[in-house]
Design a binder for these strands. Structure first.
Length: 401
DNA sequence: TCTGGGGTCCTAGGACCC
DNA sequence: TCTGGGGTCCTAGGACCC
C-alpha cells in the first residue's frame, strides 16, 4: 500500500485585520475591530485607499479585498477604517511561524500569513491529524490571540482549498474521496489559480463550477486554453504533485513602486522620485548580498495603463547611481508624456555576490586559456603558414551554401 | 478622494545562431 | 532560387496571488 501524504495548510483569518485587532486590544482598546464592520485600508489622501483586509461583518456586506474604500463605503455606510501597520504584521507573522516550528520543522512558509506543514512526517509523534489540527489551532488562538483555518489533505492544492472553506477558526479536510462533494460544488473562481479573467472565459463556455471544469472534455477545452488545459483540469480534479519546499527559495527579483499623490508630468520631479527608488532598491540588494543583471522601469499613467521597459546589463551591479542612470534612460525611452500616476523600478536576475565574483574569476580563467591558445596559434602560423589552423566556426560558415 | 505594493509564472514575438 | 527548422535569449505584457 502506498502511504499518501498528509499536508496541512494553515491560514490566518483576515490576517491584517486580526493582527491589528490583537494589537489594539493589547493597548487597552475596549472594542475588538473583528466584531465591527471594519477594514484595514491605505490612505485615501495619498490615493492608496484600497481595502487590504476586511472583517466578517464587512465581508457579509459584500466588501472585497482590493477594492477602493470609495466602493466599500457604498456597500457599508458605517464602515470603520483602520490603517495598516506592516511592522506589526511582520512581528505577528514571525510569532506564528515560530510557534508552529515548535512542533515541526517541516514547514513551508508561502506568505506572511500562511504556510504548509508536512504532517505525514510527524504523525507518529502527534497521532491523528484532525485531532492535532484542532489542538494546534487552539494553541495559536490561546497564545497569540488570533484564529487560523487549517486545511488537511493529501496534497498542497487540496489543503489550500480546504483551509478556504468556511471561516473563521475552523479545521477542514479535503481527502481524495471528498473532492466531488466538497470541491466540485464550488463556483469556478474559487479554484486556486483561476482569477477574474480565466473565470470569465470559462463561464462563456458554460463552466460555472469546479466540477464543470473537472468533467469538461480536454480536447474541447484545448481550443480555448492551449497548453494550460491539462493543468487546469488536473487542478479541478484535485491533482497536484508539487512538493514541499523547505529551504528558503532564492528571491527572483526586487521591486519598489509608488503611487504619486498627484499625476505628474514634471520630468525633474519624476527623476527625483526615480532616484530615491533606485536608492531603496540598492539597499534591498545589498541587504541580500546580491547584484542585479536586469533593471526595469514600471509606469502607470493617469488612464491606468501600465508600461514596463527593461534592459539587461553586461555586468551585474548594486550601485545606486548606475541603477538610477539606467532607469532614467529607460524612463525617457518609454514615457509618452502622459501624466504619471505610479512609477517604480524592478531588478531581476539577481546573483549572489559570492557567485558573481566566482563567475568573474571563471571568466578570467577562460580568457587566460583563450589567450594561451591564441599564442600557440600565432606560433604555429609563423612556422607553417596561415592555413595551418582554421577556426571550426569559420569552416562551418564557409562550408555553408 | 474609485482603483496599493510586492511578488511569481507564463506566453508570444522578435532577434539571432547553427 | 524561394523561403527550413530547432534552439536560446530577450523583452513586454498579462494573469494571478497575498
Amino acid at each position: 500500500m502506498i502511504m499518501s501524504n498528509i499536508i496541512f495548510h494553515i491560514d490566518v483569518n483576515n490576517a491584517f485585520l486580526s493582527w491589528s485587532a490583537v494589537e489594539l486590544l493589547n493597548k487597552g482598546s475596549k472594542v475588538d475591530i473583528r466584531e465591527e464592520c471594519a477594514v484595514i485600508a491605505g490612505d485615501e489622501t495619498k490615493r492608496c485607499g484600497v481595502v487590504l483586509a476586511r472583517s466578517i461583518e464587512a465581508k457579509k456586506k459584500g466588501v472585497i479585498t482590493g477594492e477602493s474604500l470609495f466602493n466599500a463605503r457604498r456597500k457599508c455606510s458605517n464602515l470603520k477604517v483602520y490603517p495598516p501597520n506592516h511592522d506589526l504584521y511582520e512581528k505577528m507573522s514571525g510569532k506564528l511561524f515560530e510557534l508552529i516550528s515548535e512542533f515541526t520543522s517541516d514547514v513551508e512558509i508561502v506568505s506572511i500569513d500562511e504556510c504548509y506543514v508536512d504532517y505525514g512526517k510527524v504523525k507518529n509523534l502527534y497521532g491523528n491529524e484532525i485531532m492535532f489540527a484542532y489542538k494546534l489551532k487552539n494553541i495559536i488562538k490561546q497564545k497569540l490571540g488570533f484564529t487560523v483555518n487549517i486545511g488537511i489533505a493529501n496534497n498542497k492544492l487540496c489543503a489550500k482549498m480546504a483551509s478556504n472553506f468556511s471561516k473563521p477558526d475552523k479545521v477542514h479536510t479535503l481527502y481524495e474521496d471528498e473532492i466531488k462533494d466538497k470541491m466540485w460544488i464550488l463556483p469556478i473562481d474559487e479554484l486556486y489559480g483561476v482569477g477574474e479573467k480565466t473565470s470569465e472565459k470559462l463561464k462563456v463556455i458554460n463552466i460555472n463550477t469546479i466540477g464543470d471544469l473537472a468533467n469538461f472534455k480536454p480536447n474541447e477545452l484545448y481550443k480555448y486554453f492551449k497548453k494550460q488545459t491539462t493543468k487546469m483540469i488536473d487542478m479541478a480534479n484535485g491533482i497536484d504533485n508539487s512538493i514541499m519546499k523547505y529551504d528558503e527559495v532564492c528571491q527572483k527579483g526586487i521591486s519598489h513602486s509608488t503611487t504619486l499623490e498627484r499625476d505628474l508630468i514634471e520630468k525633474e520631479e519624476l527623476y527625483k522620485i526615480l532616484q530615491s527608488i533606485a536608492e531603496k532598491i540598492t539597499m534591498a540588494l545589498r541587504g541580500q548580498n546580491k547584484y542585479t543583471y536586469v533593471v526595469a522601469v514600471i509606469l502607470r499613467d493617469k488612464f491606468f495603463n501600465n508600461y514596463t521597459h527593461q534592459t539587461k546589463l553586461k555586468n551585474a551591479t548594486d550601485m545606486p547611481d548606475e541603477i538610477f542612470q539606467i532607469s532614467k534612460r529607460l524612463f525617457n525611452e518609454m514615457w509618452n508624456l502622459e501624466p504619471i500616476r505610479l512609477i517604480g523600478i524592478r531588478v531581476d536576475q539577481l546573483v549572489s555576490k559570492d557567485n558573481y565574483q566566482l563567475s568573474i574569476f571563471e571568466d578570467f580563467k577562460e580568457r587566460e586559456k583563450q589567450s594561451k591558445l591564441e599564442k600557440i596559434i600565432t606560433k604555429l602560423k609563423e612556422k607553417y603558414g596561415n592555413n595551418v589552423i582554421i577556426k571550426a566556426s569559420l569552416v562551418r560558415r564557409n562550408g555553408k551554401k
